[in-house]
């Protein structure tokens, strides 16, 4: 019985789409429409690569890399104008998290340059090392460290104490 390329891919996509979409929402600082677009584009690219994925050690991690690159390339095609903050999550989880802090975080992410935002998402959401982040962004480890430091400085300036308070409880 032959398993179709589409079936195999659907299995992968069903398992990975949630995480890709959430990453995309952070990358776009809450623009869910753009995040949907990026997620679909990423899945589309993965589908086209499917069958050659044996050359890709970890398709799930590679998909996240593709997502970030797709996001950055989308940002470059846009004009340099400040992107308006998109719509906020239409789903408020009942997990004790602070909706105001979430809004403040998305706002603070939106104020970062796209590449700095990508570094923050890869390192502190995707939990990648400096080197893996550098690989994903086709840049040097030194550049990732510089961006990380700059981005954290800006985020701390904007969020400061409220983050510590959230983390401490």
């Amino acid at each position: 019985m032959r398993t179709s390329r589409a079936d195999e891919f659907l299995e992968f996509a069903s398992a990975r789409t949630g995480q890709l979409f959430r990453s995309a929402c952070l990358l776009t600082s809450g623009d869910v429409h753009l995040a949907e677009d990026l997620t679909q584009e990423t899945l589309g690219k993965m589908y086209a690569l499917w069958g050659r994925t044996s050359r890709i050690g970890n398709p799930a991690a590679y998909a996240q890399t593709v997502l970030v690159r797709t996001f950055l390339s989308h940002q470059r095609r846009r004009s340099a104008t400040e992107r308006p903050l998109g719509e906020l999550p239409d789903h408020t989880p009942d997990d004790g998290s602070d909706p105001l802090l979430r809004i403040a975080l998305l706002d603070a992410l939106a104020a970062l340059p796209p590449k700095d935002r990508a570094v923050v998402v890869l390192r502190y959401w995707e939990d990648r090392s400096v080197e893996e982040t550098a690989d994903a962004l086709h840049t040097s480890s030194a550049a990732v460290r510089t961006r990380t430091s700059r981005a954290l400085g800006k985020l701390r300036q904007r969020l400061g104490g409220s983050v510590a308070e959230f983390a401490g409880r």
Binding site: F21, S23, P93, F166
Partner: peptide
């Protein structure tokens, strides 16, 4: 401290009710 806040924000975006993500991705592929 940022990690938990980022995760909470990320997890707040639900994919429920967005079946077009997978089907649209497949179509684009």
């Amino acid at each position: 401290e940022l990690g938990p806040v980022l995760r909470a924000a990320g997890e707040s975006f639900a994919v429920d009710g967005r079946p077009e993500l997978v089907s649209g991705g497949l179509a684009r592929g």
